[in-house]
Design a protein around this nucleic acid. Sequence first.
RNA 1: GCCGGGAUGGCGGAAUGGUAGACGCGACGGUCUCAAAAACCGUUGUACCAAAAGUACGUGCGGGUUCGAGUCCCGCUCCCGGCACCA
Length: 935
Amino acid sequence: MADRYEPSAFESKWQKRWEDAELFLTREEEGRPKFYGMDFFPYPSGAGLSVGHCRNYVPTDVICRMKFMQGCNVLHPMGFDAFGLPAENEAIKRKTHPAPMIDQYAANYKRQMDLVGISYDWSRSFKSSDPSYYKWTQWIFELLYKKGLAYRKLAAVNWDPVDKTVLADEEIVGGRAERSGAIVEKKWIPQWFFKITDYAQRLIDDLDSVDWPDGIKAQQRNWIGRSDGVQFTMRVVFPDQSDLSDRYDLDADPERQPPNAQRRSLHFDVFTTRIDTIFGMTFCVLSPEHAIVEHISARVDDQHKRAIADYQQHAKLMSEADRTATNREKTGVFTGAYAVNPANGKHVPIWIADYVLATYGTGAIMAVPGHDERDFEFAQKFSIPVIPVIAPHQVAAVFEKVEDRSGWQIKFGKEGLTVLTPFASDPGQSPSGAQSSPQEEGGLPFVAKDGVMINSGEYSGLTVAEGQRKLGEWIEALGIGERKIQYKLRDWLISRQRYWGCPIPVIHSAEGELQLVPESELPVYLPDVENYEPAGDGSSPLAHIDDFVNVCDRDGRLGQRETDTMGGFACSSWYFLRFCDPGNDDEAWDKAKAEYWMPVDCYVGGAEHAVMHLLYARFWTKVLYDEGLVSVLEPFQRLQNQGQVLALTPYRKPVEGEVLDLGEEGILVSFEEAKKLEEDQVLWRWARMSKSKGNVVTPDEAKEQYGADALRMYLLFVAPFNADVNWSSEGMQGSVRFLSRVFKLVTELQPLYEPNWRHHIEFEPMDERAAALRRATHQTIRDCTADIDRFQFNTYVSWLMKYVNAITDSQPKAKEPSKAYELAASEALESLILLLAPGAPHSADELWEQIGNQGFTYHQAWPSFQEKLAVEETATIAVQVNGKLRDALRMPVGTPEREAVDAAKASPKVQSHLAGKTIRKIIYVPDKLVSIVAN
RNA sequence: GCCGGGAUGGCGGAAUGGUAGACGCGACGGUCUCAAAAACCGUUGUACCAAAAGUACGUGCGGGUUCGAGUCCCGCUCCCGGCACCA
């Protein structure tokens, strides 16, 4: 019998027994509520799991185990996101084939997860690279295609020269490929897209219905980037005024067709969210790639023609990274043409500049330097006039009263807008509300989100909100534009010119027509080949495999297979549905089964997928909902992001001339090197565990040294679930110590254990000691249950620790325990073991057996608490005088106000602070507080 | 710049507007031991005081609301994460 935690003696034994008993096979029994708990689909890396991964898996395991004990049918699956770039790159590096390699890595992941005792139902496991899985990924692709949500078009896309593939916008961070770190280039290639933009609004709206961290929701809203504004047409005029004879070929560009008027003139559309500032427009800007630039260029003189051509060339050559670099100085050229401001008929110069993006809105803007920082910067540089048209309410009030405004000036500063009057030298004449302090040159524009319109003709005097509404109506009435909603979100680029991915089930017929591979012929198998390295010319490796490429099309003629594969995010956009019915050969999933299990009740993973996987999976779910294939609009009801586990990592101080990696304070060195260096030469920093940093702690070694349960309890206890933690072996020791205390306590109390305590305890009169123990028991059940539900695993463990202390202290030292105490202790023993079970399942099962029970704690009912047993008999009532704590009284719970107040007044400590004062007011909070106000 | 999230003892962190610092780590003192480790017991926010009692101070900074603020409101500072010329 063990009176301490000796994990090597029992942890592996229980893992074997769980497996033999098929303990974690998913049940679908009637009459039980369901609970679907899941972790993010992991890519099985060759480095194996670190304890950092366990910080994801253990908490999910705790909640799933508790839910099962509470009587739920629990679906707790695990599979592997095997397709994709990381696997393929690793295989190339190792000169092996990704398929067997990934099998081996996945097997290792499973072994490690089992080592930690995670309760996965492995019978439902699969890899995204299994043909039985990707058959249905292709099937969903075809569904999207049929619905017009998958399309192929020539596009300038993000090309990663290192990984030699195209990437999605979501995979680019600051102009670099997130994975390879390469500076992304622009390349024009025909690409496959999913039309996620059709779902932009629903993807925003339905965020309201899910229980996710605010930060993730905000990131998604941001990424989708809704802007409400007005889009309207601007007519182009040339200095010679012969503009009407010039015709812009509208039919060639139907998207830019205006509602009705001005069909014969050259024109372009602009989008603005600030139509209220239209009177402040002093120029327009087109992106260098805008289609109309050619037409303008054709009508202007040679000097401007050349300037335009030069600038376009310059823009074309610039890399995406350079172009989007922060704080770049504005550049641009005047085209020689003008646009007519529809609000006041004024002609404003048309410029081209690369600060206007071709890919957003209409690729053209009205520029209002008075109220837009970028336009202001541009205007300053090119000496374009600035007209303020929005003033703060109090300034506008003064400004609008003045009839002769000659000599008045308006300037902008950090404080807002400043009016400089001709009588500024005489402060007495300066209207109140208008400052006249000297302004530094080059001040900021006044980005007036609120204020009053000025210098705006008949609209002057309206507020920003009113102006936006009225001008929007006016533009619509005029027929030159309409109110419009723009989204930053762009369509999801799905094709990859790489081998290790799900083949796109499309055939290019002899006529160049796109044909879907018939459903009966799915899957399109990924061919097993020796050489699959990317060519680097933008073609897929599959394009060079003749057997694969050449097929019969629908009409029996020679066609060619699509050779791009799908990016890995396609595979992970529906795997949660497959887990509901993983063995189904006839369908992707049985609708009834998906309806039963979906949505995922608790989804756990890292915050780095905020806008990629989580957005794509939501999109697919909505499409499948529209098809009637799933019954939920959102796949993941509750989402939680775990914090990372950081490890102390040695860095060396850089020697002169050495360049540091971005964000690093020193040069990374190995632990061996660090030992050799002088102490003051080594900088120890907390860094995310990674193979390259050499700071990984594996669950294997943690289990070997401390035990799986100690690791689990440590990860739960060390910090709030979503906070980063610093790995510490002292902390691990603490967990070992706690579990040892549990073993010791159970061993001590075991002789008192009465398995039938339940039948006797209500009839046995409770003495004070027994009642106190029962109180601790029921409070602990209450608090542990609530905190697991709330994802507060650190306090769940705290309550257990406190409970162990309480039971220990409750034991009678000198005399024999009473019958009542024996029964209370029996209840406590069982409760302690069962409450411990989700966190430390091996120890719980061992202890359960040790006190003479059979079977698994997993099959026991989760303890329930009785409110009446959890309440305290006496309360500590704080007594405050003028808000300061002066005494604390122990009084029975439910003491009436009168008594409590009298007792408080009687307290000598309180009296000394009341001496010579008159009581003005007394506040009483039952069982908590008496607050006396006196002066 | 914009959008999120933070800031509490030596450290990780608790705390429905009601006794701030639960629980743990570390540290210090003790028991056991020839000794050490382990284990166990005790102390541990700061200041004044020999100590206790006591008093004052104390949740990033400055204001405010309230009998009472870590918690609510206004204005900042710093840290972390994301986005970033998106009109």
